[in-house]
Amino acid sequence: MIMTVSRKTLKSFPTHIVVFLAPAVLIYSVFMIYPLLDSIRLSFYTADQAGVTTFSGFANYVTIFTDEAWSNSFWNAFKNNMVLFAIHMAVQNPIGLMLAAILSLPRLTGRHTYRTAMFMPTMMSVVIIGFVWQLILNPLWGVAESVMDLVGLADYFEPWLGQEGTALVTISLISVWQFVGIPLMLLYAALLNIPEDLVDAGQIDGANHWRIFWYIKFPMILPAMGVVSILTFVGNFNAFDLIYALKGGLAGPNFSTDIMGSFFYRVFFGFQLQLGNPTMGAAVATLMFLIILVGIMIYLFGVQRRLNRI
């Protein structure tokens, strides 16, 4: 009798689950959730000259959206960030898909070499990527112009990184070059998971590679495409390093490469003679968090549910 009672209490209180979860919950709370909440709290304060903070409600947010100088910078950064995201979605992910499809073809020689080579830039430091591409595209000593000259295109060379109309697209493409390995790997893994029998059945029915890919393989990797899209979205709206490495904190020319991350950096830490404003910076950080949150919600409720239904 006593035995069964103690067994029941043991079962009703699963200590081991708490023990196993505790480290992750603790570390995640201390290093992620607490800073996030505290940053949101800080965004409702303003600081005076001596650094004393006072509660001011939504004043920082009102300033960001109603003060023309602030709202112009904010929407400019938001727009540029959307362009960055659009270029990644339109260029990086289709290329990643194409490369993954080619890599997953049966009997492809040198597959491992290609795979490693394509994933290499993703593992390199952004500072190195920025430095290398700046040298390649440098109008004074870069190889880009001489390479273009070899194929008779020298007249089309321009200092792309320095022009207002081309700087953001150039940086986006550099970023695409760097991170194409991520969709490549995720989609490649998804493609390898497709059972052989489905492909065999398609072949027996007389479908060629093209039809097999679009009618059998592609629908089966749609969930992976969703994950890739959401990773791209979060990565792009948190991006900062490449812009800082290539264009500095002022994200020139004329803020044409300013994205949410670089805008936040200038507000929070200050820049040259502009002193940092931690409370306003916290407000910008909270807005970045909200933008990412909304994006993920749209994906979760609008896209993923439909994907699951397939």
């Binding site: 440098n138 004074l140 321009e158 200092p159 792309w160 320095g162 022009q163």
Partner: peptide
């Protein structure tokens, strides 16, 4: 200014 000065950085100017 040098050709492509729009993408020319401070160390580039020094080296030039």
């Amino acid at each position: 200014l040098g050709k492509g000065f729009k993408a020319q950085k401070y160390p580039d100017s020094q080296n030039l």
